[in-house]
Structure formats: C-alpha cells, structure tokens
Design a protein around this nucleic acid. Structure first.
Lengths: 193, 193
DNA sequence: GCAGACCTGTGACATTCATCACAATCGGTA
DNA sequence: TACCGATTGTGATGAATGTCACAGGTCTGC
C-alpha cells in the first residue's frame, strides 16, 4: 500500500472503525490532494466554505479579523480535521480565514464535487457525517476549556497535552489563541520557577 | 395532529428538512418523553452519557464542578438539543452535570435503546448524525465566541441575540457562563448609560 | 558579514477584574 | 404587615492583565 494511502487510512480510523479497508481508496478518491506554500489561504473571510480539510503535512491556522487585529481560533496539525461548519451547513459567508501556517498538504472533502459524484446516502456522505460527530466531541471540549480554565491554566494544559503547538507555532500566534496578549503569555512562562 | 407531535416536528425541522412528515412519528416514538422537577439531573458527573436531549419545556443547565465552584457551560431552552458528545462518543465518564433549571420536559434520544430497536443505518441513526452536524455548527460558534469577545462584549451579545437567557436565568448563574464573577457582571450592567 | 524582518522578554504604568464585606431589593409566605 | 431567603448592587482593596516602549535574539536572503 502506498505510504500516502496508509496515512490516509490511519486518519480515517481516528473517526470511525466502521469503514472497511476496501472502501479506503474510494474515500481517498473522493478528495482532492493539495499542497500549499506557507501563507496560502484555503478559505478566505467572505467566501462560503464548501469543504472539510484533513491535514496531511504542515499545519493550518484558522483566524478571525477583529477590527484589524488577528485572533487565532485554531491550529490543525497532521491528521486533524478542520473547516468552517457553520458557513458550510448554512451557506453563510465565512467569518474566518483558514491558511497554511507552514508549507502544508491537505486532503479536501469538497461537498459540491462529492454531491456531483455520489448519492446523499452513500458511504462518503456517511463518513462526512461521522467526521462531524468526531469534530463535535473535539469542539465541545474546546468550547468548555475556555469557560473553565484561566489563561495560566490554559497554557499549562497546552504544555502538557499539545506540546507540538508550542514547538511549531510562535508565542505571538499562540497568545491570541489562549485569550491573552503576547506580553502576558511571556510572563506566564517566566513564572514557572 | 397532536400539539406535542407538532412541536416535535418543528424541532426536527430545525435540524433537517430531509425527513418526510410520515417519518416524524417513528422518530418521536424512538424517544422517551420525560418531565423533570427543577433541580433534577438528567446526567451526573461520572456517568457515561448515552443520550441526546431535546428540550420540550423549561430549560436545562449544563455545569462543571471546579474544586467546589460551579461553572455553567450551557443553557438549553425549548427546541434546543444538548448532551455530552465526548462522553457519549468515547464512552467516557461525564465531566459535567445536566439538570433542569426550571420544571422541564425533554425528549430523550437514548443510543442504547435505539440501538436495540433499529439498524445502525436506519433513518433514526441518520437523524442523530444530522443532529451532530447541527450541534457542531452551534458549538463552533460558541467556542469562537469566547476567544473573540471580551466579557462586556459577550454580555451585550447575549442581550441582543439571546434575551430570554437574561429573563429566565439569574445573573449569578449567567456570570460564570460569561467567564466573570457576579459582581463584575453587575458592574457591566450598571455601565450602560 | 550584514541588513531587515520577526520574535521574545521585560520595565513602567493604566485599566480591568476578583475578592471580601455589606446594603438594598424582590417574592413568597406566615 | 412582617419576615425570610435569594438575588442584585456597590464600595474598598489587591491581583491580574493590557498597553506602550524598548532591548536583545534569531533567522533569512543578499
């Protein structure tokens, strides 16, 4: 089995074990594989999101523009699924931009192109709904994470549970994701004595 | 059509228009209808969540216990769907408690009882996955809402987009939901001059 | 090597928020 | 009416965070 397909299968397995191995090529064939230079956008503010992205290499950064200030909402690394579900589901213009934070590669599940090729009750649509269930568990966590923890607790949680975020993303970028300024994040780090 | 079934159909329509009217009684039959006194819990911390709840009357409050302090994570009113997806999907003990904030009534989609009666690819399972897609759009919003807005902005947003929350829930309860103390919320309100 | 862009740390000061304490208000009820 | 419990408002004070300014470090391309 080619290395890329093997990785794709591994990432499908994160979502569900109910897809048999022989269906994997069909799922992968339903996606578009795309390589991106750092800084290239997959989704821009104002566009309608029509895809779910599965990161194959590098990472994607989702951010919101608040009166000229950038607020990072999400970082998606290898094997992570992302997109803008509200925009996709309700055909609304995107409030966010999703772009490559490093040189990256993604598998793109494009709803329109899949709708053209497959029936609404096909395996591929079932799989996309299962992605939604998977993403929902992750997003529920994210949402409550913010309500429960203070900025300092959030930083230490990331340190323990998602250390690659600290290794691969600059602190200036992480600070808005944690809901503090970069100066405060710098001081949180200094206090670990 | 009985009034209760009519309301149920209306709430199904919020999730999808793809369920034909003749399937509504089947969906409703797959649920358990339950009335709750104020303060009664549907899900307790430590239990595994096996259901999605659709609120028929009153409201549900989801909260987290942080070292003895209660942090409200969610309020679900008539027609809202809620549950603890991470616990349900991964069979993990619940980190949250879900209970009636007023005398309430709910339709309960219990996964185990539905699994016993229906096939995994049946309409009812398809509908539950569609609930997940719907909930995901709402939860995505919630999650980013916190990262983007300051406590004051959050209050004014609620004031405009979810006024019944302010009418039906005490300010002491709302404050932890907005991520501030009740005193600070009181001062935010005083400042509108 | 060097210039320039970007990133991190830190000091000084203003602002916001949490904490503690207590007063005022409102509803329901004896 | 009078009382009680729950809720909300508000003052005083200290802690946390934001803002502004600047210094030093790292990396890249010329």
């Amino acid at each position: 089995m080619p290395a890329l397909e093997e990785r794709f299968r591994e990432y499908v397995r994160k979502v569900t074990l109910r897809v048999p191995d022989e269906d994997i090529p069909m799922l992968m064939g339903a996606t578009e594989y795309r390589e991106l230079k750092k800084g290239t956008a997959l989704l821009r503010e104002g566009e309608v999101c029509r895809s779910v992205y599965l990161v194959a290499a590098g990472y994607l950064r989702t951010y919101y523009n608040k009166d000229g200030t950038t607020i990072n909402l999400n970082f998606s690394f290898e094997g992570d699924y992302t997109g803008h579900i509200k925009s996709m589901r309700n055909h609304l213009p995107s409030e966010y931009t999703i772009e490559a934070g490093e040189d990256a590669a993604v598998w793109i599940f494009n709803i329109d192109s899949i709708s053209g090729q497959f029936d609404r009750d096909s395996e591929i649509f079932l799989f996309i709904r299962r992605i939604a269930m998977y993403l929902l568990a992750v997003t529920e966590d994210q949402s409550n994470f913010f309500k429960i923890y203070t900025p300092t607790e959030r930083y230490h949680y990331i340190e323990e549970h998602n250390p690659q975020l600290l290794q691969r993303v600059s602190l200036s970028q992480i600070s808005s994701y944690l809901g503090v300024t970069r100066e405060t994040l710098s001081r949180i780090r200094a206090k670990r004595d």
